Simulated scan of single mutants.
Amino acid sequence: MHYLPFHRYYRHLASPKYFYIWANRLIPWLKRIGLLLTTVGLVWGLAIAPTDYQQGDSYRIIFIHVPSAWMSLFIYMIIASCGAIALIWRVKIAEIIASVSAPMGASFTFLALVTGSLWGKPMWGAWWVWDARLTSELVLLFLYLGYMALESAIEDPRQAARAAGILALVGIVDLPIIHYSVEWWNTLHQGPTVTKFGAPSIYWGMLIPLLIMAIAFMVYYAAFALFRTQSEILERERKSEWVKRIISS
Rank of each mutant, 00 (worst) to 15 (best):
E151K: 08
L169S: 11
I178R: 14
A168C: 07
M77L: 08
T109C: 15
R158I: 03
S15D: 14
S72C: 00
M218R: 00
A23Q: 07
S248D: 04
W70D: 07
M148G: 06
A225D: 09
I21P: 01
W119S: 04
G83S: 05
M148P: 02
R25E: 14
H2K: 10
I62H: 01
K31P: 00
W130V: 04
F110I: 07
L169T: 05
A168W: 03
L143H: 04
D52F: 02
Q159Y: 04
I233D: 09
V100A: 12
H2D: 09
L118M: 13
D131R: 08
I48M: 08
R8G: 07
P5K: 05
R238P: 01
Y3H: 14
R245P: 01
K196T: 05
M1R: 09
Y221D: 05
L30S: 11
W29F: 12
P192V: 00
S101A: 10
Q190E: 00
P67Y: 04
L210Q: 07
Y18L: 14
I208A: 14
R11E: 15
I154E: 04
A223L: 12
P16W: 07
A225C: 12
L145P: 06
L118C: 07
I212N: 02
I79V: 15
T187V: 13
F6A: 15
V129D: 13
I215T: 13
I212P: 01
T229S: 04
L150E: 06
S58R: 15
I27G: 02
L118V: 08
R238C: 13
A214P: 02
Y53W: 07
L118R: 05
Y9I: 06
L36W: 06
A102P: 03
P5V: 10
S231C: 09
G125C: 04
R236E: 01
V182L: 05
